[in-house]
Simulated assay, not measured.
Amino acid sequence: MEQLLMGSFLSAMATGAGALPILFFRTVTHRWRDILLAFTAGIMVAAATFSLIPQAMETAPFYIVCLGVLTGTLALTVLESFIPHIDLEHSRVNLSMDSQALLVLSAITLHNIPEGLSVGVSYSSDQAGLGGLVAFAIGLQNAPEGFLVALFLINQHVSRAKAFLLATLTGAVEIVSAVIGFYLTALVKGLVAYGLSFAAGAMLFIVYKELIPESHGDGHARSATFSFIIGLLVMIGMVQQFG
């Protein structure tokens, strides 16, 4: 439990760490943002396909893994249908500033719930080091997310300190959902494989629906592609070393 709390806390607070630079400067180049997003996408793909899914298949039949992956994908799809994705820098949604800021914060917070579940389920697995690897992958994804949310809030005339605090709080829900995921799978061992594949499906949805399109939207597709591959290899190396 102590490792779970530490891992989920660090993963969640990566959102605040990503928002921290907003206290000192307001912009980041599109090139470096895209490179970071693509690197994170590579990390998450490797975590899902080389850690979560193989571990699930060791303890459950293939149809359970398929069901878990599809359920994880569906869960993110349903969340997005209620709280649609908003391009944080080029939004054309016809909302007032306060309503738009609230919508973005709600979307990011809900989006973090399955990420926290992924961390909790991974810590309940019997595979040593899996929880830490997944927490690391989720934390990397949270950092640029925190920066973009804080930047958006500043553009909505929210003070820098308040923008940093709100961006950090959006990640705090991951701690609660991680504990819920851990106890659910710990109480019902049959849920571990399903939970791991659910986490994989949720992560793959985030990668393909959010991270890759965002990293290719500003003309830096080649740099982003190389960054994705490097991130993939880095995570595979970590899985081999620590998984």
Rank of each mutant, 00 (worst) to 15 (best):
E2M: 01
E2C: 00
E2I: 00
L4T: 06
L4N: 08
L5W: 13
M6K: 04
S8F: 04
L10W: 06
S11Q: 11
A14L: 14
G18S: 04
A19G: 04
L20H: 06
I22A: 08
L23S: 03
L23R: 06
R26Q: 01
R26D: 03
T27E: 03
V28A: 07
H30R: 04
R31L: 00
W32Y: 03
I35T: 07
L36C: 02
I43L: 14
M44F: 01
V45E: 00
S51G: 10
L52C: 07
P54V: 14
M57Y: 10
T59Q: 13
I64F: 02
I64E: 00
L79E: 04
L79T: 12
S81I: 14
I83K: 03
P84V: 13
H85V: 15
H85R: 09
I86K: 07
D87S: 03
L88S: 07
R92K: 13
L95G: 02
D98E: 14
Q100L: 15
A101W: 10
V104A: 14
T109F: 05
N112G: 10
P114C: 11
L117T: 05
G120E: 07
S124M: 14
S124Q: 11
D126A: 14
D126K: 14
L133G: 10
V134I: 15
F136N: 09
F136D: 10
P144M: 07
E145V: 01
L151P: 00
F152S: 12
N155L: 04
V158R: 13
V158F: 13
S159E: 08
S159N: 10
F164D: 01
F164A: 09
T168C: 00
V173A: 01
S177Q: 10
T185A: 11
T185I: 05
A186T: 14
L187T: 03
V188T: 08
K189A: 00
V192I: 14
A193G: 06
A193K: 02
L196I: 02
A199P: 02
A200Q: 07
L204F: 08
F205M: 01
V207S: 00
K209G: 01
E210R: 00
I212R: 01
E214T: 01
G219C: 08
S223Y: 13
F226V: 15
F226W: 13
F228I: 02
V234C: 04
V234Q: 10
M235F: 15
V239H: 03
Q240K: 04
F242G: 10
G243K: 07
